[in-house]
Design a protein around this nucleic acid. Structure first.
Lengths: 347, 347
DNA sequence: TGACGACTTGACAACGTTGTCGTCGTGCGT
DNA sequence: ACGCACGACGACAACGTTGTCAAGTCGTCA
């Protein structure tokens, strides 16, 4: 049979030159209405669809924005991509997604493939490696925006990790907690490092000694939450509350605590998750809205398209402490007198 | 400054012809090792990355597989895409994702853009429209696989909606339930239509009259779960159990029931969701594994690449009824004597 | 009437890569 | 010594589209 119809076939069928067809397709003016109608009819009849590859070869850009994230199976990133896609659509841009699975080498491949290979109109990525020297040649021509984790010299959209974490921990301290477990510390994420700083800030300000026994360290994602939880709750001076440094940890914590009948253990999570407000008690969270972050990221990217040589900015997206119950509970056996707050929380 | 290095620059720098560079990049044999080394060195030095657009223009395919789904914010689809991406990566294919938001017109645009515009190596899509006549010209050249919802004449990967739903409803009937609410009926999805058939199958076989009062109808996603739940529980002959026809409905049901203190109302969900096994009682589910479906879909797609003219097949991916508690409860006031089962469920 | 501008159209090159084919040299068999 | 096969490489066209530029038609104004 015949191959896909190309612009040539349309031109022949409409009795015009290929350039005129091109003009019609691209909605350039200066085409006689009658000619346009003939061409349109031929396009319709043949089912012509312009070839994207040829188009972007010619124009040097492919009208897509590349997104590189940790994993699509992560609901935070899935929602992030969804937000970006919606806005990109309105802008007439399509979306190219790929996951790194936290592998810096794969990150490199993907970013170079997008920027140099596909010549995307811009890239939004959750950085894995500490530095991305290989992106330097493209800085001036392709807008790059880091999300979730910031990097020096690159436009970034992040939340105030340190401050937000401090807010959460402060609430626990105000309720009388002195032994707050930190789940989990993970070398791979600078965000978590900053959240730890916020945690330490509060302890310092409240004159509470930092105890590394209260920190669960996650090596390559292989932390056994069950046994770590048992450990910190079994210390001579046990934890009276949990601070989950990320949603994944919060989910694990919640699951284990519920399964073992300790669902009333005070806890606050950095990062919301579905059902955090359904279970009893509701899990109090620092809410890090993926839609907000996604929208901010693509907004920044679109701005960079206009003025490519703008200085890199770091955008801080606001968070909120959602008080749902789990984080508004004083220690069961408190050594200090409780303030009026006690049970129940606000809201 | 200088523009991005092209194959010509590499050729000049290495002192060879562009064709030789092409050979090295594509790992064709018949290149002298020493020459190859020179070229490789030049590539390294210049930071050359081959242009994808030109490549796919020449070869007629772009080495990507297109995925068209309802929405990335839906965890089921996010996991599905994640599974497909992993397998595609192993195959050296990249992934192009886009959401329809259930708009058939947008589905059409996306599918045509992928198949005709981008000339993808294959498409996996969750069909929205009842028919896709515009895909006919590509049937022979581009592998197409429908997921989640099957369509005549197109390779499909689905679960046995009718049988699985029947399995769940049967369990409720076996426990003595005669008034089982169906949440929700939604015209837009044929899967839900088939699940309804399974529901009716069981009622018929058990000689239970179908009562349309027990069915919550969702028009364009605007169902008010809260009031519908109140309605079916307030009937003269009220519902004693719920069958959620989809995960979204299950989440809404669970949320409302928990918030209103009726969390022990018997219920089974078609479709698992996170935390279904954490809350108390756990929500019994028909488990429809997105990874299983994703893997099957891409496996079928890869097979179609080998033999493009194979007859369309419908693959049925197995489901499992996860008994977690909520679906193993007899009616509170049962008109019939209870079998030995009673409370607690198996597992 | 002639010239000039506005509008419409087309021929052709170019984008960066790969496929086709031909050339050149070298080693081997006879 | 001659021919032949084979390995290594390059010149050139082609993929489908858009940008550049020139050419054609028509109406209008002096």
């Amino acid at each position: 049979m015949s191959r896909r119809p190309g612009i040539k076939d349309v031109a022949a069928s409409a009795g015009v030159s290929i350039k005129t067809v091109s003009r019609v397709v691209n909605e350039e003016m200066a085409v006689h209405p009658e000619t346009r109608a003939r061409v349109l009819h031929a396009i319709q009849a043949l089912g012509y669809v312009p070839n994207t590859a040829a188009r972007s070869l010619k124009s040097g850009t492919n009208g897509a924005i590349g997104i590189v994230i940790d994993s699509l199976a992560d609901t935070f990133f899935a929602a992030l991509v969804s937000a970006i896609e919606r806005r990109a659509l309105a802008e007439g841009l399509s979306v190219l997604v790929a996951s790194t699975n936290l592998d810096p080498e794969r990150e490199r491949e993907l970013l170079l493939s997008f920027v140099a290979g596909h010549q995307v109109a811009g890239v939004i990525f959750a950085p894995v490696a500490a530095e991305h020297p290989y992106l330097a040649p493209f800085r001036s021509s392709t807008p790059l925006v880091a999300v979730d984790r910031s990097r020096a010299g690159i436009d970034s959209v992040v939340v105030d990790d340190r401050g937000s974490a401090a807010l959460a921990v402060q609430q626990l301290v105000d309720l009388g907690h002195r032994r707050i477990a930190f789940f989990d510390q993970d070398e791979r994420f600078s965000t978590i490092h900053r959240r730890m700083s916020g945690y330490l800030d509060v302890l310092n300000a409240a004159d509470i000694d930092f105890d590394s026994e209260l920190v669960a360290v996650n090596i390559d994602g292989s932390l056994d939450y069950r046994s770590e939880i048992d450990r910190v709750l079994g210390l001579d001076d046990p934890a009276t509350a949990f601070f989950a440094s990320n949603a994944r940890a919060a989910i694990e914590l919640t699951t284990v605590l519920h399964r073992t009948g300790r669902q009333h253990t005070p806890m606050i999570s950095f990062g919301d998750f579905s059902f955090a407000d359904v279970i009893q008690p509701g899990v109090s969270c620092i809410d890090q809205d993926p839609f907000l972050i996604g929208n901010a990221a693509i907004e920044r990217l679109l701005a960079l398209r206009e003025s490519p040589s703008a200085e890199p900015q770091e955008w801080i997206v606001p968070t909120a402490l959602l008080q749902r119950g789990s984080g508004e509970v004083a220690p069961f056996r408190s050594a200090v007198p409780l303030p009026a707050l006690a049970e129940g929380g606000s809201r």
